[in-house]
Design a protein around this nucleic acid. Structure first.
Lengths: 198, 198, 198, 198
DNA sequence: TATGAATGAGTTTTCATTCAT
DNA sequence: TATGAATGAAAACTCATTCAT
């Protein structure tokens, strides 16, 4: 049972409540506990009965999203075409994270309460997917695997921050262009050096 | 006279005060009015005498940044090489905005208090720059000019949100990959259709 | 049937439950209704089915303690030695009340929800005990019977508030000194006049 | 300037405000910050501008009262008659503390946030005053100096808890009886042994 | 009838904004 | 005009009490 399901369990079974809560929890910082409770259709007291604290809810949603992404990556590791696998992971990654600023921040280590183990797992999967795509000659080798989370997180963060969902599938266009830019052969070498992910 | 200069007028002529206030105002949410005033070297009372409200100052700083970008674009419109002009504008845009989430949001119309006129001007310039690059055959024509602010804003927002500056020039690598993906010829057509910018 | 027995009725017949609840209720302010219910081994719902309110339970425990004191006084009224009777009553009074601030407050009329009848009975007994001790020439006559509840309540309140039980039998030493001070002959007359107990 | 004066400085100079605040601060636990502010005639914001936290105000009032008592004791150490000195100290002690539960608790080590140094000083003075009274043959020697703070604190706590001020000078009668009981010669030996003050 | 989940008023504390000096 | 003290509306969180099961 997810953290959000826990928040909604029992009580008022309004059908749209779950999406409401997820949206709110995903928004992370800047949403009050009263507002989260209101959107979930429960009182503040109930919110705190189920959720330890406002921060704890955000952290829990975060952890679940990261775990989902890891599971998705594991499935794609069995794929025959490494480039397609990477592209599909990218799509999954951004789609899942598109509504969630916090998780994107966590992926590059900004978010204080992100579960480090989960992040490490996620990065390991990404590392392998990139390595395979580069070994297959489908991806530029001047792009380090550490660049990729920054690129994807940018799309996800940008999408979330800018509320692009409202404008349809804009993020798919953004992502496609980025993937095109990542494709071999390299038009010209990248400046700087690969970022470290601590 | 900029909003920040207005805030500092008549007061302590410390050279670093202006950057101080701009930085603080750019940080937007999470910075208290007292803190902005303190960095400006004035009392809160003076702050509110010179500035409508905390939000208004942030909006003003925003507007100034956008105006700077417009001026930069105007210079680049005279450039001989349209693709290079677009790339340079992109670099300037992202560099100027990298520290500022709010302006990136404004560019795609999320930010309630963004001055619409300034935004319209900025978009007009971008439209022209993209058109020229495409007419010169240097840029994929399946990318609409409306896609570009989303792409650049993503890099800028991502950079700001993720605090990438700390990791050096990561945003330059991100941007380069995106520009590579925007270059003609198109590897494969984009999904969906061009976004509308309201 | 006492209030605490009512709370425990039909439920778990654990021998220590009653003391548990009494102790908790005696603590008065600062103990939650959930905690009292938990110690009683019942749910909050049952707590409120059997007890008007959290305050009402505390008041009821209070009333029972006062009733106990009245019964004790009645036994001592038959005693041959009036001074010893008074001393023993004082010991009983303080010992029973030592853990209970609320009852001490009630004795001098501070406590809003104290049952007035019970208090009146308690005061009547004390009046008689003091009168007899004075008539027997064992107690200073410049001390009014109305002074005594204040003196005893002070010891009890002090003991409870200061948590003296932890330090053993400190209250017995305190009380002994006070009783010595009450003994005839009077070293010097008391200032002021006897307090009224409204 | 005392903590209470600090809370009241400037602003609304209502004459009764100081007594109001002291009363409230003295009540300690159980009074809300809003209530303290209201009685002081200021807003909550002002309260927190001047007072760090609700607990900090209580602690500050506490410290000041203890310091006053130490100063008073120092003056009495020069007195010619040791017994009168002790009696006067007792009167001062109780009078100053009569309205204050917290300080009385602190004197016997119950109060978590009491400044330990100040308490140690206060106990040292009391020790000397008792020693002198006993050496002069004016006070029972079976009473340890450590008993005295418990006796005085009982009167003070009782007075405060029971709100005896409303009934005039009841505490003076209580105290007089206790002092009479402390006087040499001893009617009969005390039970138990002297309390330790940690 | 017994239960404990739900509720919301109340508590401490912060911060944008106003206003007396 | 410049200042910063004063203000009170929120925000996170607790707990006495109610009510659906």
């Amino acid at each position: 049972m997810t953290a959000v399901e826990a928040l909604l369990e029992g009580g008022h079974p309004r059908a749209d409540a779950q999406r409401n809560v997820e949206r709110t929890a995903e928004a992370g910082t800047g949403v009050t506990a009263h507002e989260i409770a209101r959107r979930a259709g429960v009182g503040v007291g109930t919110f705190y009965r189920r959720v330890e604290s406002r921060e704890a809810l955000v952290a829990a949603v975060l952890a679940e999203l990261i775990a989902d992404a890891v599971a998705e990556a594991d499935r794609l590791l069995d794929s025959a075409d490494p480039w397609t696998a990477l592209c599909e992971f990218a799509v999954v990654f951004v789609r899942m994270r598109a509504a969630n600023v916090a998780v994107s921040e966590a992926v590059v280590g900004q978010c204080g309460f992100a579960p480090d183990d989960a992040l490490t797992h996620l990065r390991e999967r990404l590392h392998v997917l990139v390595e395979r795509a580069q070994e297959a000659g489908a991806m530029r080798t001047d792009i380090a695997w550490q660049d990729v989370p920054f690129l994807l997180a940018s799309v996800a963060t940008g999408t979330a921050t800018l509320g692009l969902q409202a404008t349809g599938q804009q993020w798919e266009r953004n992502l496609r262009i980025i993937l095109d830019g990542m494709r071999a052969p390299s038009p010209c070498p990248l400046p700087g050096k690969a970022p470290s992910l601590s």
